[in-house]
Design a protein around this nucleic acid. Structure first.
Lengths: 339, 339
DNA sequence: TCACACAATGTACACGCGTACATTATTTCA
DNA sequence: TGAAATAATGTACGCGTGTACATTGTGTGA
């Protein structure tokens, strides 16, 4: 292995000068720089990231904490793939590497330890839930001043750094679209309220109803867990509501449940888009594959990942922090299940 | 920040003893161990991974090189998510972290530099292609003795470490299934031959035809690029072949193309599963969402990722290397498009 | 020409850990 | 009981880099 020493020796300078040339710090005579660069080139010298990290006391790693989802082995593919990809772009831009952290099945969340061990300089928590253990873990990060950012989740009272989309507006749009199309009895298949996005969607749903002078009926709100299966399972109840004339449209909090619901309803002889209108959420790949095509709400997951990383990594001077504030816009995509 | 020094001081031993206790090396008096552990606990001491890595000259990172796929921002979700998840499990098991490496859009492949910089101790290359730049990059890794493993790709002549599934057998099964169902004129929508899996599928396709006494007709083989769009684009040609009676079934090299093809054919008034049989490949999420449900070949992506990581990280003594050799089995899943 | 500013480089050390080697304490065995 | 073996611990240093500080070189202005 070739180190700074050999380069210095070959270039006929001290190690410090080599370091300065490579890090572009301090004044260097042009001739010296060339000699050093030449020597480094010739020896194929590559600085040891290990030594650099150690000397700088910075790992240069951005940790990304992934939720443990037992069914799909890792993640509800589309959603996380996009976010991760956005994170990757920003990380690269700012010279950071992305360290993947798979949460334990046990649910242990000792995020602070990752900082203590200096494995990461900052981290993005995906799929954070509003449960006590999570809140404790995040509070510890906050207290110790470790930089972290949530994606698609907010803890209103805590004021943690987070990047989120405007799910209230998205749901409002979705439900308003159904109302505009003539629906008056709209069921809502929501996800668990440990996710702020579920709460946001609920409020958007309610507001759209209220704005149209429609009453909110708790009996029309069903609870799923964002899985396809839970959509299928909701079908029976939804079918009954449809048959009894209590429901003429359904808004599902994500596409997976919406698609599961479509399948489940089909068994009951009910066809989405014909017998009942349906709107999903996420604009996932499945939404255009399914038949009829699913009306849904597009969420800029890629951009959300990018912003989260940028907020953590961008130097203050870039002044991006401000530009990155606020909820990202979502937009309704009208397809076949709502016309 | 609390370091070994404070722990040693509090426990009344030397730093070396602290190190020995925590690393469980050498004989330690029980009482001493307890004192040290107590002290570490009390101080909340967490060893600096940075310093450890530096001292050991090992990063403890398993690099995962991700292909650059412009359209889907990161990856054809299901496929990579599963592999990545499997890698994550094995990495965790062997005490490694997963460092994500997003390939440059430019296509630069200086994998060796990652090792030179000591950023990773081993790496898994996803989506490797049989193109000159790739071969050069991999040859360099091999030459320098850096441990790496390919997934779902082989370079026959080079003998690189790789984990692959038996796509020849999978394709054979798929096409045989179509033949058994009465099809005699089977088109093949394959992917680019820079992927060995494409070549494997081709040979399986040919063998199934040959075994059934059917002639291989190059005119019935179409080329896509594994994207949904390319499936849609192939529809016109396939539709013509079907109309002219030259084709009564199609085998597509992955689900995305198969699903795109279904959509494309629908425009031409041709319904998969009714007017033409269709088999896809991958058993992706979409295959059960699409209607009619797609017959496909299930590939153990998760297990492939796990094995790739295990091959690189498992200590010799575990003797897993041998168990992990050979192609992983795939299996046909019969659904609606082929009955 | 001399003093002084600043450019350019060298010297020296810290960073926190693993570990080879030296040293001391304890056991074993005759 | 004494010597040898072994357990238990301490001492000392290397790992490769960043960088504070010291030193030397190079103008600059009166």
């Amino acid at each position: 292995m070739v180190s700074r020493k050999e380069v210095a020796s070959l270039a006929g300078v001290s190690e410090a000068t080599v370091s300065r040339v490579l890090n572009k710090v301090g004044p260097i005579r042009e001739e010296t720089r060339l000699r050093v660069e030449e020597a480094a080139q010739q020896l194929g010298y590559v600085p040891s990231a290990l030594a650099q990290q150690f000397a700088r006391s910075r790992s240069g790693n951005l940790g990304v904490i992934l939720p443990f989802v037992p069914k799909v082995h890792l993640f509800s593919t589309y959603y996380f793939a996009e976010i991760l990809s956005g994170i990757g772009e920003a990380a690269k831009q700012y010279g950071y590497d992305v360290l993947l952290i798979f949460r334990e099945p046990s649910g242990s969340r000792d995020y602070a330890r990752l900082f203590l061990a200096q494995k990461i300089d900052a981290c993005i928590v995906l799929g954070a839930q509003n449960v006590p253990e999570e809140k404790t873990a995040l509070a510890e990060l906050q207290k110790k001043g470790y930089p972290f950012c949530l994606v698609n989740q907010r803890f209103a009272e805590e004021g943690y750094l987070s990047v989120d989309a405007d799910h209230h507006a998205g749901s409002y749009e979705a439900v308003k679209h159904l109302i505009d199309g003539g629906s008056r009895r709209i069921a809502f298949l929501n996800g668990p309220d440990v996710f702020s996005s579920s709460m946001d969607r609920m409020s958007g749903y309610k507001q759209a109803l209220a704005n149209a002078g429609l009453a909110y009926d708790p009996a029309l709100t069903l609870l799923g867990n964002y899985s396809r299966k839970s959509g299928v399972e909701a079908a029976e109840a939804v079918a009954a509501l449809i048959r009894s004339g209590q429901v003429d449209a359904v808004f599902a909090a994500n596409d997976r449940m919406a698609i599961g619901l479509m399948d489940g309803l089909r068994v009951h002889g009910i066809k989405a888009g014909v017998d009942v209108k349906l709107v999903g959420y996420d604009d996932s790949e499945g939404s255009v594959i399914v038949s009829p095509k699913l009306t849904t709400v597009a969420v800029p997951f890629y951009e959300m990942g990018r912003r989260a990383a940028r907020r953590l990594l961008a130097p203050e001077k870039d002044g991006l922090a401000q530009a990155d504030e606020g909820l990202l816009p979502v937009h309704l995509i009208k397809r076949e299940t709502s016309s």
